[in-house]
């Protein structure tokens, strides 16, 4: 994901802002890291450049 995505995403649970922690960057693309809700503290992973903002109760749900 690119950093400007931060302007439009929020915590899916309480809609508060997220704080970005970058672990790996490839030019402008954030490849690995986390997004942490500034209100509830829920941590959402960024893996292979894709932020996973599924609510925690849906995150483990994985057909096939």
């Amino acid at each position: 994901m690119k950093e400007d995505l931060m302007d439009i995403i929020c915590c899916p649970v309480d809609k508060h802002e997220l704080e970005l922690d970058v672990e790996e960057r490839d030019d402008e693309e954030i490849m690995e890291g986390t997004l942490t809700c500034t209100e509830c503290g829920e941590v959402y992973p960024i893996e292979d450049g894709i932020p996973n903002l599924l609510p925690p109760d849906m995150r483990e749900e994985a057909p096939a």
Binding site: M1, I8, P12, I50, N52, L53, P55
Partner: peptide, 9 residues
Amino acid sequence: VRADLTTAF
């Protein structure tokens, strides 16, 4: 973004 509908925006 991996997300449920519009909930993460």
